[in-house]
């Protein structure tokens, strides 16, 4: 039982982690939580569906296109909902993101809302479970886990090994200083929104066979991703990964060993306990004190 619960927890946890990474990337640079992130995930799923299922484009190309499509949408979000309000109070920025989320969701409902409600996405490899050790696993779970880990590795390489990644980190650390050394901060912000959205697109294309696709799929996932980001320490990328996996595993263990009625609430109880003991999250930096 434990092995099954852990494998399932890791799979759903990887989804939360990928989503949380997207949130954290944007938050690190802009100090704004992108509440349209769930809808970007949803649209990423529909992009992949339209290309792979309807237009019969090979899956890998559909995944790349979904990532590209959500990246473009992220740039659009930044242009329409963030940049015009860049000097406005944070609450205005948050409300703009929420409003944009409704626009995206409403658009998806108009286009895909009435086609069977929950649209299936075929698994990428055989649908029959396989046995690894003594544990039966749906191969798609392995695809998701592998894909999520690959995305995370690519992120690490991007942030630490590329000029763009370093510019992004520099802007996140101190926007004024970054501007002084010649970094075009506005471009970095736009790029950040795009990259954050692209992770949602990647997560959606990977997870669609497990989650199904429908216009409201992003709402609940956003809450879990946000919870993962907070648990890990809002602003910490490794924290987002750790938070995502922790929530996935805790949910499954609580559901399996206590009762399934604890499944939803368990992760939030853990978050509360962690934040009481460590207010900046598992890997978040402690706030600087004035002496």
């Amino acid at each position: 039982m434990l092995a099954y619960l852990l494998v399932s927890g890791l799979t759903t946890g990887s989804l939360y982690a990928l989503m949380a990474i997207g949130l954290v990337v944007v938050y690190k640079a802009t100090r704004v939580v992108n509440f349209a992130h769930g809808e970007l995930f949803m649209l990423g799923g529909f992009f992949a569906y339209a290309l792979h299922v309807l237009a019969h484009v090979p899956y890998v190309l559909a995944l790349v296109a979904a990532v590209g499509g959500t990246l473009a949408l992220g740039l659009l979000t930044e242009r329409l909902a963030y940049r015009p309000l860049i000097r406005a109070p944070t609450v205005s920025l948050v409300l703009a993101a929420v409003g944009f989320a409704y626009v995206l969701r409403g658009t998806a409902r108009e286009i895909w809302g009435g086609r069977g409600d929950y649209i299936p996405f075929p698994p990428l490899i055989r649908a029959e479970p396989i046995t690894i050790g003594s544990v039966l696993i749906v191969p798609q779970q392995l695809v998701v886990l592998g894909g999520a880990l690959l995305c995370m590795i690519l992120f690490v390489l991007f942030f630490n090994g590329t000029r763009a990644g370093k510019m992004l980190q520099a802007t996140a650390e101190n926007a004024k200083a970054a501007r002084l050394v010649g970094i075009r901060v506005e471009r970095v912000y736009a790029f950040t929104w795009g990259v954050g959205a692209a992770t949602a697109g990647a997560a959606a294309a990977l997870m669609a066979p497990l989650t199904l696709i429908y216009p409201d799929v992003g709402g609940a996932l956003l809450i879990k991703a946000f919870a993962a980001a907070v648990l890990g320490g809002l602003g910490s990328l490794p924290g987002a990964v750790l938070g995502g996996f922790t929530i996935g595993i805790v949910e499954n263990l609580a559901g399996g060993y206590l009762h399934t009625s604890f499944q939803e609430v368990s992760a939030f109880v853990v978050i509360m306990l962690v934040l009481i003991a460590h207010p900046s999250g598992l890997l978040g930096a402690a706030p600087a004190r004035r002496i």
Partner: peptide
Amino acid sequence: DANDGTAQ
């Protein structure tokens, strides 16, 4: 909106 039913 569950994404996993293993525990159940």
